[in-house]
Design a protein around this nucleic acid. Sequence first.
DNA 1: CAAGTGAATTTGTATGATAAATGGGAGGCC
DNA 2: GGCCTCCCATTTATCATACAAATTCACTTG
Lengths: 245, 245
Amino acid sequence: MNGRKVQKRRPIGKSSGVKLHAEVARNIGERILGGEFKPGSLLPNEAEWGATFAVSRTAVREAIKALSAKGLIASRPKVGSRVEPRSRWNLLDRDVLSWHRSATDRKAFLASTQEFRRIVEPGIAELAARRRTTAQIDQLVAALEGMKRAKTHEETVSSDVAFHEALLAASNNDLLMPFGVLIEETLGNLFDFTTQRNKHYKLALKLHENIAKAVIAGDPEGARKAMLALIGDTDMVIAVASKGK
Amino acid sequence: MNGRKVQKRRPIGKSSGVKLHAEVARNIGERILGGEFKPGSLLPNEAEWGATFAVSRTAVREAIKALSAKGLIASRPKVGSRVEPRSRWNLLDRDVLSWHRSATDRKAFLASTQEFRRIVEPGIAELAARRRTTAQIDQLVAALEGMKRAKTHEETVSSDVAFHEALLAASNNDLLMPFGVLIEETLGNLFDFTTQRNKHYKLALKLHENIAKAVIAGDPEGARKAMLALIGDTDMVIAVASKGK
DNA sequence: CAAGTGAATTTGTATGATAAATGGGAGGCC
DNA sequence: GGCCTCCCATTTATCATACAAATTCACTTG
């Protein structure tokens, strides 16, 4: 009855590259974000997870520790691991955000990310205009060049992300850095949303250019307004794309 | 020569309640935030940490996993654990923020948190005015009552925190929830900063009241402005307190 | 009936062994 | 001599097992 087998490899599925504990964490994390395990409820104990995934308790524990570190759960001896209230979840964490996206209606997800960006990005642009170093200006310009030069879909997305991250870096406030992951998630999804945006792209370029100009000129209020114009335009793109569906 | 000892308890220091791996994570985390281990540099390997703290590799690994989950480090076989670039750090994580505060000049820390709040809280107030449910209004009012009634230092802080968290909750955007920890950290520190603020407190109360009124009335623009007024006043309090030092 | 006590369960930690990944060096080939 | 390939050492990744600690809960006992 004692299932003593000698170390099977890769019991979970998928192929390679990803560590076991990361796979376990992802699986559990997605199920929490997906609502299968609600805040306040108790998770299966470590042994059960081990059986479920056919991995050792060690791997499970490392996954649990990662989920705890992201604020999703909390563990206590004799009790088990309980799902934390949503207010504790680190939704701006790279992984958590990705799990959240997988578990959320596409349109609703985009709406909340856009709302988020509308709140913070104007402030970021304003700060950037006030604080940017010359090196940061160079990065911003380089990203803008990349946007102009972009041919493929991938290049378009990555240069756009680079632009916004350069802006973020130029704000020179470490506390704002976590927003980077959200920008990446949003833009990746956004462009995916609007593949035939050629007519929009020319305008988008101009809007980005306006932001860069204001930041370079050291005009905080101008930068804020230029960013607002961009986000507003992006909202429109989303609306059009949603209606087109 | 083989140091085989039978499980010592509590080898790190401190007293109780805190798990070993959490202690190890805190120690390493603080040293990373403190600049002892800079981004890109390699950490000692797991065995060395184990020797340093007199804990098993198991505990060390769980600490490492937690730090990875917070974006501070990344591990690779044969290489070791490397400190990630600051842009990857989850500075809005409860622990990371706390380590950051310990490692940062008090005034600079307050300045950057205030800057952060100035960017996001007006937007939060605006959203709250647009979205709040009646239950959320009740919470907001209750927090305000708490502020009026507060006698001790502790009550003052906790009711103020409750007010801002109620506002945050009323914004009804999950992505904003992580800001809660920052608000807690800031306010705790702020009040600590200005102990004899009795003359200011009357004004602060009024400013909070204005925010609540606008939110309850469903006046987004009013809520935004009221919040801006509060943050501006807080800035002044900081300036005064700093000069007074 | 109340309070304390002990057993059972679950996480926490320790230990030792093996597997996988990978960087770097040794050695061979052209 | 330069380049390529293969092997080896190091470090993390995973497994298995045992025991410690914490905490719940039922049960005993006064």
